[in-house]
């Protein structure tokens, strides 16, 4: 599946990633009575006032815009939890904390449409921004260890948007490294003598593979 917007930019645009994120489930508390909705993606409802229920984010946002529900922010979107995550992110240079795959998009959508439902929205917002910055900086430092022996990258717990940002760069960089490491250009003897000292160096590369 490829993105539709701009084939040169990256596979997906930010808006497309957001679109995918809208399928994530959130809990809402409706304030109307409504029969169950039957969609291709599943059946949701029936809705009763003050009875919490699970719906996709896009439906939650649509209902919220019409003033028909309040959205319960996900558990990870609390000040305590996010402070914890931020500290853990800062402590470790290599490991990425476990956050929802679409945390950037979900938080953005909720900040845009459901500000009044999130307690301490300013605090939460700046925490999410900080976490994203710290994580992105970590990705960059990790990428510095990229070299011609890396055929692929594995970074655990990276979120959809973060992957999407670095995708074009990493793709091109890996391609370039692969090209310059072709056996036609690097003679075999040289390769062997080149490899030896890098046995120790291998450890540095492994950091990316967690």
């Amino acid at each position: 599946m490829a993105g539709q917007s701009d084939p040169n930019l990256s596979l997906f645009s930010a808006e497309e990633v957001e679109f995918i994120a809208e399928d994530e489930m959130v809990e809402i508390v409706p304030n109307l009575r409504m029969d169950a909705l039957n969609f291709i993606c599943g059946d949701f409802g029936p809705f009763f006032p003050q009875m919490a229920t699970q719906v996709p984010l896009w439906l939650a946002v649509a209902l919220k815009k019409r003033g028909k529900c309040t959205i319960r922010p996900p558990l990870w979107m609390s000040v305590e939890k996010l402070t914890q995550v931020l500290e853990a992110e800062r402590d470790s240079q290599r490991v990425f904390e476990q956050l929802p795959f679409h945390y950037v998009e979900i938080s953005r959508l909720l900040f845009d449409h459901a500000r009044d439902d999130i307690p301490d929205v300013y605090m939460v917002r700046s925490l999410v921004e900080d976490i994203r910055d710290v994580r992105f900086h970590k990705v960059e430092t990790n990428l510095e260890t990229l070299n011609e022996r890396a055929l692929a990258l594995k970074i655990n717990n990276l979120s959809a948007m973060e992957v999407n940002i670095v995708r074009p760069f990493i793709g091109r960089a890996l391609q370039a490294f692969y090209k310059h490491d072709s056996p036609e250009l690097i003679p075999d003897q040289e390769r062997i003598s080149d490899r030896r000292p890098q046995v120790a160096n291998n450890a540095a590369r492994r950091h990316l593979r967690r």
Binding site: L9, A14, N164, I165, V166, R167, P168, F169
Partner: peptide, 9 residues
């Protein structure tokens, strides 16, 4: 490539 994806984000 890096600049434009960052700008788009």
């Amino acid at each position: 490539a890096a600049q434009s994806s960052m700008a788009a984000f």
